[in-house]
Amino acid sequence: MTVALDINNVSHKFGDFTALDDVSLKISPGDFTVLLGLNGAGKTTLYSLITRLYNNNSGSIKIHNFDVRDQSSDALKNIGVVFQQPTLDLDLSVEENLHYHSSLHGISKAVANTRIKDEINRINLSDKLKNKVRSLSGGQRRRVEIARSLIHKPKLLLLDEPTVGLDIGSRQMILKHVKSLCKKGELAVLWATHLIDEIDKGEKVVIIHKGKVLESGGVATIVKKTKKKNIREAFNKIVGI
């Protein structure tokens, strides 16, 4: 069976500091997996390795069987990314930003027009297409970034703390939207967060702390294993806070 994301024994250091220590995890198509960890746990470093911003010097990272290091082009074709920091060009319009992204994936203008229309409708921002990104709210910008990350039809969507700094309404809207994408079956999502209330009961969680994966599995399994009442208490016990 194809694995959407297959990480095996990946470690990463910045000088003497070990940012990731022997990390392994697997995500299947259609999975919504939460990468849960405190700030500085190593989530962003892991994302940088998956997206080949950094090279993995140990272990392997495969996306739909393509090795990120050796078959980076095929691997990156299958990834959509929403980074922790906003990455839209504020001086360009929503449409210009989305076309720019399409061109970075070599998509023709005609195809891009159709996909942009579809994605922007899906996030209910079709009336903002010609607006400068600067004029959008934080929540709207995040939704545009999610739309952008889907234009090239990736099979794996990576979101690095996408709801940080947003109000409750925007957070819920974005979370609901991304979870609904998974339910259609093909898209796998890795959602990094430190906000425990973003996790639903039936989901898979990977708990990362100080660069190590301490626990992974379904919410119910982790709660049962730690003999706690809920995932918040289980998390606190696992990371020792």
Partner: peptide, 11 residues
């Protein structure tokens, strides 16, 4: 962060 958008392109 916008440089990352370009650097994660498959090209």
């Amino acid at each position: 962060g916008s440089m990352k958008t370009m650097l994660v392109s498959p090209i």
